[in-house]
Amino acid sequence: MEIKNCTLSDGNEILLLYQAARNLQVQRKMVMWPPFEKSFIEREIQEGKQWKITSGDVIACNWVVTFEDKEIWGERDMKDAIYIHRICTNSTLRGNRYIDNIVEWSRGYASQTGKRFVRLDTLGNNTKLIEHYTSAGFNFLGMFELTDTSSLPSHYQDEPNCCLFEIDLHAT
């Protein structure tokens, strides 16, 4: 297993992972991600935002990291955190708790980049995801209603209730 930035040659595989995730979201009656354009994914890759865990020649899991998220975190976003978005696990490799690898990696990455927090969000009252993220070390801060979602992807307009999670690297 290896964690590294995605490359442009990963674009199609990432799109397939996202489609599988959308299928699972429909099946489980969760808030569904919109389809993402390949050009959007490629731009994130070029900006160094897309990360992956590989297992052999396969992307086992991928996610996006950003350094600001004002639309979701509001006044809490003080440029002191990394924000994890769109964690997506290869459907043939679910159940391997890649979230634990992501948490371990993200703690180091946040520390290396001078950040205090690792944060993520999920939409709706998804009790299984709340349990999943808290079992991996995130503190559940609660559910908040987003007020200005105009610049966010469409699924944020469809479900304004957002669960916020963080890990404080300075906490004991």
Score class of each variant (00 low, 15 high):
Lys128Tyr: 00
Asn101Ser: 10
Glu166Val: 02
Asn139Ala: 13
Met1Tyr: 15
Pro35Ser: 13
Leu141Phe: 08
Val58Lys: 14
Gly108Ala: 04
Ile41Ala: 03
Leu16Ala: 08
Asn62Glu: 09
Ile167Leu: 06
Gly95Leu: 12
Thr66Tyr: 03
Glu37Ser: 09
Pro35Met: 14
Thr7Asp: 03
Thr92Asn: 08
Pro160Met: 09
Thr92Ala: 11
Ala136Val: 09
Asp57Tyr: 14
His155Arg: 07
Glu47Gln: 11
Leu24Ile: 14
Asn101Leu: 15
Gly74Trp: 06
Glu159Asn: 15
Tyr133Lys: 08
Asp168Trp: 13
Leu17Asp: 05
Leu24Cys: 13
Leu120Gln: 05
Gln46Tyr: 01
Gly137His: 05
Gly108Phe: 04
Asn126Tyr: 09
Ile167Phe: 05
Leu152His: 00
Asp168Ala: 11
Glu166Ile: 01
Phe138Gly: 01
Trp105Gln: 06
Ser55Cys: 09
Tyr98Pro: 03
Glu2Ala: 13
Thr149Arg: 04
Gln19Gly: 04
Ile41Gly: 06
Gln27Gly: 01
Thr89Gln: 07
Asp57Gly: 15
Cys61Pro: 02
Leu152Glu: 02
Phe40Val: 07
Lys38Ile: 14
Gly56Pro: 07
Asp148Glu: 08
Val65Tyr: 02
Leu16Phe: 07
Ile84Lys: 00
Arg28Pro: 08
Glu13Ala: 13
Glu13Arg: 06
Phe165Lys: 02
Tyr156Met: 02
Ser106Glu: 04
Met1Phe: 14
Val65Ile: 15
Val103Gly: 00
Trp73Gln: 06
Leu8Asn: 14
Trp33Glu: 08
Arg107Trp: 07
Ala60Phe: 02
Phe36Ser: 14
Lys115Met: 01
Trp73Cys: 01
Arg86Met: 02
Trp63Gly: 00
Val103Pro: 00
Trp63Pro: 03
Ala81Trp: 03
